[in-house]
Each structure stands twice: as structure tokens, then as C-alpha cells.
């Protein structure tokens, strides 16, 4: 049996972690706003946030590829700022994956924040806690389940992406060749033993991750005050 090339595996892990962390930073304020806003435009923002759930990855990837192009306003601005292109780069892959996994981070958080309600936050406010203090010491700990779900889903969903990566990142070893692309290539070139090894690795890792999460999840309190 041949050992699989581990470079795509490490690249995938790195991508997953970077996307998870960046996405949480974006999704927490967005989910908080969606959970509490009385703005009439809320359904519009919810629909936009949920779009990556229903769009075929190739469609999403196609539009992202166009937006990332150095000739497009967004891709051009990025090029002028950093001197790098977004297409066929790790940074581009991170941005594309963030868009692709956005609903998986926002929706569990939004549901947790909505279930939390205003009651614990009002209690905290009357105990002299300011808004950021309330968010980090009351809202987040009471939404621990939702937070964990959002972290795991955005990480896991990024591990499994294929279509968007293929469109935006291509297949550059060490830069954009993630494991799903590597397996696809191994099967295409009839390196079935390597495909077996890579797939088994992914299967074991995904299962271990989910098992760990569900075991930990039982210990968190359910959202809601008492």
C-alpha cells in the first residue's frame, strides 16, 4: 500500500481552520443582528445569507471567479492592495469558502441567539453589564451549543467543498490542491490505491470530529433563561 501525498490533507485542514475562524468573526455580528433586528429588510438579508445553500457550487464558483478576476472591481482592488491575485490563490480559496459556508455558520448562531431571547440580557444589563460585556459573558456562553455547531459545520463543510474550489482555485499543489480535488485527480488518473487511502483518512477524520462534538455538546446548557 502506498502512503498518500499528505500535502493536500494539511492544506485542507489549514483552509478549514482559517475559514472557520474568519467566518465566526463575520457570522457572530451578522447572526446577532439578524436575531434582534426589527428592520424590514431582514428577509432580504436572510435570503442572501442562505443563497449558498441552494446554489449549485459551480454557479457560486463561476460568479466568484468573475468577481475575483483582476479586471473586476473587487479582484482589481485586492490586486492593487496586496499585489496578488485572488484567483488560483489560497486567499481566494479562503474568501470563496467563507461565502460558500456562510449559512452553516450564521444559521445555528442566529437560532441560538433567538432562543436566548432578551431576558438574560436584560438581567445582565440591570447588573451593570455593558453591551459587549453582556454579549461575551452571557449571550455567548448560553449559546454554546449553537456556537459549537456553527464552528463544526463551517469547518466540516469547508473540508468537503469541491465545485467552488475547482472553479476559483484550480489544482495547484501546495496552494489550492485540497484533498477533495486530489482524490478526484487520483480517481481520474486511476490511482485507486491512493484514492482509497485519502478517502479513508477523510472518513476517519470526519467521523472522529463529529463524535467529539456530539460528546461535548451534551455538557452545555440548553439556551434560555430560568
Amino acid at each position: 500500500m502506498t502512503l498518500p501525498d499528505l500535502a493536500p490533507f494539511w492544506l485542507t485542514l489549514r483552509l478549514g481552520l482559517v475559514v472557520m475562524v474568519s467566518l465566526l468573526a463575520l457570522a457572530m455580528p451578522l447572526a446577532w443582528w439578524l436575531a434582534h433586528t426589527k428592520c424590514r429588510l431582514k428577509p432580504l438579508f436572510e435570503a442572501i445569507t442562505a443563497l449558498p445553500l441552494v446554489l449549485p457550487p459551480t454557479v457560486l464558483g463561476f460568479y466568484l471567479l468573475i468577481a475575483f478576476s483582476p479586471r473586476a472591481p473587487f479582484g482589481g482592488a485586492f490586486m492593487r492592495l496586496t499585489g496578488e491575485t485572488l484567483t488560483f490563490s489560497f486567499t481566494g480559496l479562503v474568501l470563496a469558502s467563507m461565502v460558500y459556508s456562510l449559512p452553516f455558520a450564521v444559521q445555528p448562531l442566529q437560532a441560538a441567539f433567538e432562543a436566548l431571547g432578551r431576558a438574560p440580557l436584560e438581567a445582565a444589563a440591570c447588573l451593570r453589564a455593558r453591551p459587549f460585556d453582556r454579549f461575551f459573558t452571557v449571550a455567548l456562553p448560553l449559546s454554546a451549543r449553537g456556537l459549537l455547531t456553527a464552528m463544526v459545520l463551517s469547518f466540516a463543510h469547508t473540508l468537503g467543498e469541491f465545485g467552488v474550489v475547482l472553479m476559483v482555485g484550480g489544482n495547484i499543489p501546495g496552494k489550492t490542491k485540497v484533498i477533495s480535488i486530489a482524490i478526484y485527480e487520483q480517481v481520474e488518473t486511476i490511482k485507486l490505491a491512493e484514492a482509497h487511502a485519502s478517502s479513508a483518512l477523510m472518513l476517519a477524520m470526519s467521523f472522529a470530529l463529529l463524535l467529539a462534538v456530539y460528546s461535548v455538546n451534551r455538557r452545555f446548557p440548553q439556551a434560555g433563561g430560568a
Binding site: A119, E122, A123, A124, A125, C126, L127, A144, A226
Partner: peptide
């Protein structure tokens, strides 16, 4: 003036203790 700057002690009908903290943790919060 927001509630956190008024200095009112509010005891709610449903207590509204923080579930993620112990009794001592709730008291320490205040």
C-alpha cells in the same frame, strides 16, 4: 441612561438567573 448605568436592582418574576453559572457565579457576576 441605559439600564447598566442606572444602578437599579431588578428582581424578575422568573428570577432570570444565568444558567451557565453556579449560584456563586451568579452572585459574583453582580
Amino acid at each position: 441612561t441605559p439600564p447598566e448605568a442606572r444602578g437599579v436592582g431588578y428582581v424578575f418574576q422568573d428570577a432570570r438567573l444565568f444558567q451557565h453559572l453556579s449560584v456563586a457565579g451568579n452572585l459574583r457576576f453582580a
